[in-house]
Design a protein around this nucleic acid. Structure first.
Lengths: 222, 222, 222, 222
DNA sequence: CATGAATGAGGCTTCATTCAT
DNA sequence: CATGAATGAAGCCTCATTCAT
């Protein structure tokens, strides 16, 4: 986009400096793509560099090793997501069913539909090779995520919309697991041309899933 | 199944012979474990050999290359599972809810709770590096699996137990995805000691999930 | 020498095994040569392998890293030298002057004139990059060597052959330093064809040096 | 010598100017230190720049390559030393023993005790990798040095102070080698904290060495 | 059949050198 | 002049694969 030769040298001189500032982000994006696509071990630093449009050595100006690059990729893609939905739950005033639909849509737009959705595959793939990640991910994603979902369910119960379920955490997992599978699918089988996409329309699937779950959760008035 | 003692006890001794006959199976098991744990690229042939209790060269007596070993592992772990449940659906005579609970329990016992459950992580991890797998997996697992689940749902509808859902395939995915996530979790975060197990009791989770789904599916008599 | 294709396969089968047992020594010799010639940092593992007649990877079957190879080279070339001269001093019965000449000749034959003489250059060159070596060398070589030399001088004094010197350790260094310089020279300037050899005859130099020193040490009867 | 304050105080300020003029010297000093400490191959241009307090690119403004920097370092540290002692020999009127003591003390002060003493280690370390150095060093240092020492010995013989020795060059080496070893030691084992200094007092050692040698050289009147 | 020594292509990483600012 | 971001050749080390025993 901005890599075309600058037509006017009149500008203060951003070309080199601007690149420098953008590099880490470009490298993180390139690395995320490749780590998700091929796995950490099968990704070559050369490939990361090439995809970011730099030479091999440049990557090492920004990240001291392949492993640190991985950690930076994960750190970079795990922040800020849950807190937004957290705020949503606080402020929303409609029915819990609507809130859940809104939260799911938000999440899908910001995470599921973006490059960041690959992070789930990456975690599942690499967590056993880099055990540090486990604690980090549990603390940064799983725990806040579970708290959020349980809070959401409790809201429904408190407002008389949902029945109680024997184990709210299990129920939370029933809600969220299919969405995570959507992400995993998108970056595995779903990315292979040979296998025709199994889930054709993620948004429709999410609606259907929430409908099913909400039916199962509704307080039966009868 | 085929490891039963050799019928003729006249031979010099069964132990060495049995080993030879068991080798491929032992190698496949070792390879599955390691491929699932570390990923294909990060697994060394040395490790596979060591875990199977043989020397490195021996692996090549049975599998011509690492990639062929991977394919053999996948092929070996994908067969026979669905057909069993298929038969179940044909023969079962009780309610579809009970059938689903039985099918899920059977699947969990034969797949989810065993080493073979790792195959799902392996597929997700490696399918993009070995695109052949995609078609193979789609044909051998996804399509029969989806057919089975849709048939199951249809049975419920036909018998007046379930309401119809706008997209039965989506519904099938809502049913099965959480179970697959259980397998993935078990072989990723769930295997890390640092992160306390998130899903503590798979069987209870499956019950809860089916209850929720069934509530959502039941034909409302009201 | 023995790498020609074996004409008679009748032998028990030494070719492969014998190589395996000789490898470490061959590699240590090759590494000593190259480390001494080019320095540790400038020596490539490929070069070591090539000089030992094996491929790159083979070196790593015997030494886990370049640094460990260096340590092994040093360890291997520092043992057994001083103890021999130590025994000599114990058993010799002639004049201390003769004993010193014999000791020097022995040392020159076993160390100075051999490949092992390079170890002194190697130590001087690399000790600051690998500080572990300092303590090791001080303990294994310097301390026993100094003790030996001081004992030798004391023998001369005790027998009324030598005068006392204000600082025997200094005197010991005056004795030994020129011999060490001989080794250093041999592996530096002395190895360059462009500079005509400065010390033409090491044995003659050693004789001359000892004569000078002994003249300086003799008890003056006057 | 040339770092005296700029004659014209009218200019904006001497500090920046002086730095520019001092740069080459600062770089040579930094490079000498590092080449001596770590060896040529293990020294990074970054380190040289950092020690001289400039950025990496700046080094290349003054020296076109790392190898040229090495040559400049050596050239710079080899000049001017011997000619001073040469003059001393011409002008001195006392005993040759005293002259030798004076010459040794002068040399120690101007070379041995300074940073320049490292040059001997550097030559020994690198001469085989840069054969040009051999001829240069032989011509600039060894030959004048040997001529000087032989002249010194001849002076003693001519004045009836010393006996003749069978090979004056060997004797010259016996005189000078221990002093060179002092320099080498100082920049190798002597610089390692782990090994307690072996030669504790260089000046005392030099005195002792000369006393020994002079005793060995004295014309015996008896 | 089984072994494990040997190979060498390939990947991560370093660092001398260049050059736009 | 000085900077430091960028480059890419080169070196250490790994590991899939081969093959003599």
């Amino acid at each position: 986009m901005s890599t075309s030769p600058a037509p006017a040298p009149a500008e203060p001189g951003p070309s080199r400096r601007r690149r420098k500032e953008a590099r880490p982000q470009e490298l993180l994006d390139a690395a995320l793509d490749l780590f998700v696509e091929k796995g950490f071990a099968a990704t070559k630093m050369d490939d990361v560099a090439a995809r970011a449009g730099v030479s091999k050595g440049t990557v090492y100006l920004y990240f001291p090793s392949k492993e640190e690059l991985l950690k930076a990729v994960i750190r970079h893609n795990l922040t800020l997501t849950i807190s937004q939905v957290d705020d949503l739950v606080d402020q929303f005033e409609g029915s819990t069913a609507d809130l859940m639909r809104l939260a799911a849509a938000t999440w899908w737009e910001q995470v599921g539909a973006t490059q960041a959705s690959g992070i789930f595959k990456l975690i599942i793939t690499e967590v056993r090779n880099f055990p540090d990640l486990a604690a980090f991910y549990a603390q940064e994603v799983i725990e806040p995520g579970e708290r959020l979902l349980v809070r959401l369910l409790q809201r429904g119960v408190d407002r008389g919309e949902f029945r109680t379920t024997p184990n709210p955490l299990d129920t939370a997992h029933s809600l969220i697991f299919p969405l995570l599978m959507l992400c995993l699918h998108k970056h595995s089988i779903g990315a292979c041309p040979s296998a025709d996409a199994i889930v054709h329309d993620p948004r429709r699937f999410i609606d259907n899933h929430l409908d099913l779950m909400l039916q199962g959760l509704l307080a039966r008035t009868a």
